[in-house]
Amino acid sequence: MLFTLVLALTSCSDDLDVQQSYPFTVEVMPYGDKIKQGETLELRFEIKPEGNYANTLYTIRYFQYDGEGTLKLVDGPVLVNNDRVLLESKTFRLNYTAQSS
């Protein structure tokens, strides 16, 4: 399972369409790198901003470049390759289910 996860951090105002990027890191809990067809792997993430910014929105999108599978936000939608999904929290979990060996 190889895929790239892209997170974006933006800030918006009701009066202006202003987008600003702020520095942050993403911590990922360790997970196994081997998965069999039909197995599901839980991935846990936490966004750690370098400051405390008001009205920030976090989004996620992914690109799967090896193998086949589905990626789903736990208690949320299945992610579609290259579609952006709004995150409701800085801490989130994804389930990846392998559909190839």
Rank of each mutant, 00 (worst) to 15 (best):
P49T: 00
P49S: 08
L5C: 13
T70C: 10
Q64C: 05
S11T: 09
G38L: 02
M29E: 08
F24T: 08
I60E: 07
T40H: 05
K34C: 05
R61E: 00
C12F: 14
F92K: 01
S100C: 04
T91V: 15
L41D: 10
Y58F: 00
P77N: 05
S13D: 03
R93A: 05
D15Q: 15
Q99C: 13
F63Y: 14
L94R: 07
T10E: 02
G76I: 06
D17A: 12
V80W: 01
L87R: 00
E68N: 10
F3N: 14
E68V: 14
L57F: 02
V26T: 06
P77D: 12
G67E: 04
Y31N: 03
M29A: 11
K34M: 02
Q19H: 12
E46Q: 05
F3K: 15
Y65R: 13
T56I: 00
R93G: 09
E42H: 03
N95F: 11
R61M: 04
G32F: 08
L79W: 06
G76N: 01
R93N: 10
L16H: 06
S21F: 12
Y58E: 08
K48T: 09
V78W: 01
E88W: 07
Y53R: 02
N52T: 15
Y96D: 13
Y58G: 01
I60T: 11
L79V: 12
T40K: 06
D83G: 05
G67A: 09
K34Y: 08
S89V: 00
K48G: 00
E46I: 09
F45R: 01
S89R: 10
P77S: 08
Q64S: 05
Q64R: 14
V28P: 00
K72D: 10
L57E: 12
